[in-house]
Design a protein around this nucleic acid. Structure first.
Lengths: 234, 234
DNA sequence: GCGGGGCGTTAGGGGTCCGTGAGGATCGGC
DNA sequence: GCCGATCCTCACGGACCCCTAACGCCCCGC
């Protein structure tokens, strides 16, 4: 669980970083709006804690920029208490709004609520790809082969991000644009070459016969589709 | 958009009901916790506005009961301002927590934020064409045949664009001009040959007997019409 | 009965997209 | 500074999709 902490208040940022790290979150920090947008695109946070009123780029513009390509939960922190400010932020795409000063345990509870809504509990369940068992949380892939061969497959970070998208959308078509935005960020929506390469990598590592894919299917002209193996009862 | 309003305060409930109805929401009301659970199960609300501290059943128990089988967004209203109460409600499964008294426009913005987060799956409504089930979002067509044959139909991108237009305008006449400009762009309004070709493709792939179309009908001299299959009782 | 326009169908070519392999560039660890 | 892993670039062969062209059929008007 990676949290992007965008705040220009040194003291608050340090306090939050310590508290969040103690709860097991991985924290990455941004000092202004431009840096927040950049990190949101390239560091793949699972949640964004955004302070309105940072320098260089307005907080609302940060929300709109991120929302243009990502659905990552955005939790706004702000000292402003007037409701107009809240309405603007929420309607721009923020998911929650907390006014400073706030109680730390309440903020943590709201973070958990937002994290819960996106994880979908699907992480806990082990996904099956043919004879392989994938654990997204532990980042492990083991063979459930009856012969007891403990052949473990290793994936690179980029491969994991791609695989995660496939496993979380079984049966659904994932367009090139969507995959590229989620894995490589919104500024690489045209580099279709990346996809061909890494899909080929996944197939080579996960498909029984990579030349005839059963799970990672190509939809010509549109994108790719992960088809969970039907539980055949032979 | 249907909202379940669970509150035992007559005055507040009346005010909220009027305000929400004026915004185009459909409001169903519950007077206590037991009724709220009952309506949440049977009335299929898209969002729940829940007042803690209602009689008969504790608010937290309502949250837990609903969360046992549903992911519908729950927005808690409460007069209690201590953070422990908020933490308990959020961790029980609530998605947001607003303390009374609250600004009405802020509440409405938070409702919109919650509605936005779930609307993604709403338009994934499955359309039916005879024995086939079409999912426009996932780009899948599966056979709901009773014999259990999971024959899936594959469509090309152009076929999908055309089918999407038909499914979104059931029963309506679609002129050649409209179809051509939507699928092939405004500069191909005269290439009627495209249409004949691709309508034939759709019929071949989707009609039970392509030579006698039941769903994709020709209106001579004008265009085409998609007639959703009436549930025949033969 | 006759001719014409619109519609359905089929086959084939051109172009775009996809799969694959090798090689260079970059980053972090030792 | 060396080394390994990971990421990206580039080029080529092949598959698939889209479009073009032609033919047969039905309906309609004359």
């Amino acid at each position: 669980m990676r949290i992007l902490l965008a705040d220009d208040d040194d003291q608050l940022q340090r306090a939050l970083r310590i508290t969040l790290a103690a709860r097991g979150y991985e924290v990455i920090a941004a000092r202004d709006g431009a840096e927040a947008i950049d990190l949101a695109a390239n560091a793949h946070p699972d949640l964004i804690l955004l302070d309105l009123g940072m320098p260089r780029v307005d907080g609302l513009d940060v929300i709109r920029a991120v929302r243009a390509w990502s659905k990552v939960p955005i939790l706004v922190l702000s000292g402003r208490t007037d409701s107009a400010e809240k309405v603007d932020a929420l309607d721009a795409g923020a998911d929650d709004y907390v006014t400073k000063p706030f109680a730390m345990d309440e903020l943590l509870a709201r973070i958990r609520a937002r994290a819960r809504s996106t994880s979908g509990e699907a992480d806990a369940a082990a996904h099956a790809i043919g004879a392989l068992t994938v654990d997204l949380a532990a980042k492990t892939i083991r063979s459930t082969d009856a012969s007891g061969n403990a052949t473990s497959v290793r994936l690179t970070p980029t491969e994991w991000r791609l695989l995660e998208l496939f496993l979380k959308n079984p049966g659904k078509l994932l367009t090139r644009q969507m995959l590229l935005s989620e894995v490589w960020g919104p500024f690489h929506a045209n580099d279709a070459g990346y996809l061909r390469l890494y899909v080929a990598q996944l197939r080579r590592k996960l498909e029984p016969t990579p030349s005839e894919p059963r799970f990672f299917l190509t939809e010509p002209g549109m994108g790719y589709r992960f088809e969970p193996g039907a539980v055949e009862a032979t």
